[in-house]
Amino acid sequence: MTSALPVLSPTAVVSALRAAGCVFAEDEAELLLATARTPRELAAMVDRRAAGLPLEHVLGWAEFHGLRIAVEPGVFVPRRRTEFLVDRALEQAPDARVVVDLCCGSGALGAALAARLGAVEVHGADIDPAAVRCARRNLAPFGGHTHTGDLYDALPSGLRGRVGILTANVPYVPSAEVPLLPAEARDHEPAVALDGGADGLDVLRRVAAGAPEWLAPGGCLLSETGEHQAPAAVEAFERAGLTARLAESEEWQAHVVMGIRE
């Protein structure tokens, strides 16, 4: 007869996480204890987290802009700082009726915008089929559509000139800096979601160049970038014919380039 698995106490969970180097061991333990349905599942979750798997992949979800966003192994985890981008989009285009989330990953941005805008047509697109499968789950409650392909090539042609909010949380880490990322990102998130080329702006430039064709008059493109890249990112938006400005948050350490089609 198989003996019952001993129940890990909250103290034991915290100790295991702290020993593994988890800085916020108490907070993480609380989430694991609340999510696990059985002692066996809790033990497995603690082991996976202690082995370095991102907490969100262990839980199966990430908190983002008041929503629980489903995330799966191998899919980019939405960062809380990117909520700043969502808020700027809502401020700029509160009446948008069509939202497109390029490089959508889990679909967190599209879901967050749809949740606030109400009756909106929302599309998510990504080159990674695993990300698109995940985004489909998160956009389904909002009647969202998902597409697999390279940036605008993935989108239905009927969206041209109709998009009120176009978000593109593009990969913007310079290639040489990818090996310096924390192991959670470097080892468990797809390189295509992190590596932005030599200066980190390869994908952003392509997104900016194609945006005017897809944006409605007055529509806006928003993309996150690094502080040292921001001037070049603004220049790329302006070169594409967009009226560009930079929004910054010291609290979130976030830098968002916004471009308006006049």
Rank of each mutant, 00 (worst) to 15 (best):
M45G: 09
A135M: 01
P156E: 12
L117V: 00
D101K: 00
A43L: 04
D128I: 07
G110C: 05
D126V: 02
V170C: 01
G52A: 06
V58F: 05
A108E: 10
R80F: 06
V86T: 12
F64P: 11
L55C: 14
V100F: 03
R68P: 02
D87M: 05
V98R: 02
G107E: 01
H57P: 15
A44T: 13
R160V: 04
D87H: 04
G107V: 01
A114R: 12
T146W: 02
V100Y: 08
A51Y: 02
D95R: 14
L53K: 12
L42S: 02
V163M: 08
R136K: 08
V120W: 05
L113P: 07
L59N: 14
V58T: 13
A62Y: 04
V58A: 09
A108M: 06
Y172A: 11
E41N: 12
H57L: 14
E91S: 13
R137C: 11
Q92I: 10
D150F: 08
D128F: 10
I69C: 03
V173L: 08
V100R: 03
V122S: 13
Y172K: 07
A50D: 04
P156S: 11
Y172E: 06
H57D: 13
G161T: 02
A112K: 06
V173N: 01
A111C: 00
E121I: 01
G143L: 09
D128H: 13
R79K: 14
A111L: 06
L90G: 05
L117H: 03
C104F: 00
L155Y: 08
D153K: 02
